[in-house]
Amino acid sequence: MLERHEKWMVQFGRVYADEAEKERRFAIFKTNVEYIEMFNRDGPKTYQLGINGFADLTNEEFRATRNGYKHIFHPGSSRTSSFRHENTSVPSSMDWRQKGAVTPIKDQGQCGCCWAFSAVAATEGIHQLSTGKLISLSEQELVDCDTGGEDQGCEGGLMDNAFKFIIHNQGLTTEAQYPYQAADSTCNADKASSHVATITGYEDVPANSESALLKAVANQPVSVAIDASGTNFQFIPVVYSQENVEPSWIMG
């Protein structure tokens, strides 16, 4: 197991401050690897776990840096207006990656801004469907500049608020113009001044309705939040594929 840990450190570029930290991380790594291998051996499942870049983190550490979605319930705030895709016919399959509406996989690193990545991905998708141009947009602009309310960069946020910011801000700039840093910083107005894509509105999919979600996804990429606090989510592949069940989902 020591040799596996050394190879894993090289693969993921992990460097520890001292031998004491290395020993502590090895103990966590060993526990996690044993759990992964036991899970994969324990009968057929719809997915397998893998030894990824989080293998030397406790689940508490993983949750602290990855679960940045802030679920806020406002009593009486449920929308009563009709769902725009209510009468959509759902095709047997839909993969927006094959339609050119999804950018390559991105990594939020040790920053709890999943809300920004989710909102940006949906914005990238609808912009591509509207213009035919797939542009990688800046999550860092949301992390740094969308801080006036519940959205607080690496400390978490909410996609609805990110969409409100994009509308009010009249768009986002590109990833290349305002690169991702995986850390909170001061809003750079110069970098954020060149807007290349925007939205005019957004709509929440009706709660607790998988059929409504199917109809929404049939029309465009959607922004979702997943409770990834469970141990298994720490070790799933980068793209989560729930297959061999009806309906099946692929989420990046």
Rank of each mutant, 00 (worst) to 15 (best):
Q11C: 11
A17C: 05
A20Y: 09
R24E: 06
A27C: 08
N32P: 02
D42M: 09
G43L: 05
L49E: 08
A55T: 14
N59L: 06
N59K: 07
Y69M: 00
K70R: 14
T80H: 14
F83E: 02
S89A: 12
M94T: 14
W96K: 09
V102T: 00
C113E: 08
A116N: 05
T123E: 01
E124T: 00
G125S: 02
G125D: 05
S130D: 10
K133E: 15
L137I: 02
Q140W: 03
V143A: 00
T147P: 03
E155V: 04
F165G: 00
I167C: 02
H168I: 13
N169R: 08
Q170R: 11
L172A: 12
E175P: 01
Y178W: 02
P179C: 01
T186I: 04
C187T: 02
D190P: 07
D190K: 10
A192C: 03
A197R: 04
T198S: 06
I199M: 03
N208A: 13
A212S: 05
L213A: 03
A216G: 00
N219M: 11
Q220R: 13
V224Y: 07
S229Q: 15
Q234F: 15
I236D: 09
N244V: 14
N244G: 06
V245S: 09
I250M: 06
G252W: 08
